[in-house]
């Protein structure tokens, strides 16, 4: 269990993390989503006690990170920057980590096997590809067989096979009852792995919701229409009480799954349709819209919904 309360980090004038309150529970993969620069890595560094919060508090199973007596068996983390001395072999890198926490030496070989680096265990880490470096970082996170795992953008630099592997790994770790907290700037990635979603933008909490609810709230369906007799079609739809939105180009959009009704109306009035396609707004679009609103709110301070309310909108929907 990771619990954040009013967590805030300022670098000079720049507010990197702004009053974050949420918790990450066991047995689930919790996705931590936000565009680049949203403050995900900074939040994770504060969870690990590497950066000092400007305000607020964060606890691991009820304790501050620096009060943990067995940090690596409690929480394992993969950070965004490579935390490896390139001159050291993969084996020795993991060995010095294991020794620092009194973890049996046999675990080193086990985790190297798990991440598929056994063959290059004695090779220097600086010769590793991005993906191999990522696997070494994951091996370090798994070393203590911890009950909490935290991964900062783990799929970066991995090939498709590696991406599939890490998704499966995260799900199986959560299925064993562990807390899994993983960050990404890609909604599509989160949609595939996460059970729960925490979205931040500009350091502020935008949503804290289950993945199922997020999908339900955001999988907006609509019908896209193109018609050479555009004005007449607009009249017809208006009379039928159907609201039309002008999309880019000459296309029109109608919310909901009304394709049949529109097709029948067009036939009745003898209108030619060049396109009549039912569509689903992607979660990526929903995510972009959510974070874009945060940017707008940031740019024009004044009366209006606060960041918590944005979150509430998604929660309640």
């Amino acid at each position: 269990m990771i619990e954040l309360e009013g967590l805030t980090k300022r670098y000079g004038d720049k507010v990197a993390v702004d009053n974050l309150t949420f918790s990450v529970g066991p047995g689930l993969v919790t996705g931590f989503l936000g565009p680049n620069g949203a403050g995900k890595s900074t939040t994770m560094r504060m969870i690990l006690g590497l950066d000092h919060p400007t305000a607020g508090d964060v606890r691991i199973d009820g304790r501050h990170y620096d009060r943990l007596k067995d940090p690596l068996t409690c929480i394992g983390a993969l950070l965004d920057a490579k935390g490896v001395h390139g001159g050291r072999s993969a084996y020795n890198h993991l060995l010095c980590l294991a020794q620092s926490n009194g973890i049996p030496r046999s675990r080193v070989a086990q985790v190297l096997e798990t991440v598929g680096l056994t063959a290059v265990a004695r090779k220097k880490a600086k010769g590793f590809s991005l993906g191999m470096g990522q696997r070494l970082g994951i091996a370090g996170a798994l070393l203590g067989d911890p009950r909490i795992l935290m991964f900062d953008e783990p799929v970066n630099g991995l090939d498709p096979e590696g991406i599939h592997w890490i998704r499966t790994l995260m799900k199986s770790l959560a299925a064993q009852g562990r807390t899994v907290f993983v960050s990404s700037h890609l909604m599509s990635e989160m949609a595939l792995t996460a059970d729960h979603l925490v979205v931040i933008g500009q350091g502020r909490l935008l949503a804290d919701t289950s993945m199922a609810d997020f999908i339900q709230a955001n999988s907006r369906s609509y019908v896209r229409i193109r018609c050479p007799q555009r004005e007449r079609l607009l009249d017809v739809l208006h009379q039928a009480g159907i609201t039309v939105v002008e999309a880019g180009g000459e296309a029109l959009e109608v919310a909901g799954g009304k394709a049949e009704q529109i097709g029948e109306l067009a036939a009745r009035y003898g209108l030619v349709l060049h396109e009549l396609s039912p569509r689903q707004a992607s979660l990526e679009e929903a995510f972009m819209q959510l974070t874009a609103e945060a940017v707008e709110y940031h740019a024009q301070p004044g009366p209006g919904p606060g960041p918590q309310d944005w979150g509430a909108g998604w929660k309640g929907a």
């Binding site: 309150t21 066991p26 068996t73 203590g144 009950r147 562990r178």
Partner: peptide
Amino acid sequence: PQAPAAAPHWQAAPGGPYPGYTSPIPIVRT
């Protein structure tokens, strides 16, 4: 979905307040 989790309880009840995975690796006080 998340409303109850929004207020963390620092003072957890005794007797395994943080459920989840238990590792077979012995815990060592470093």
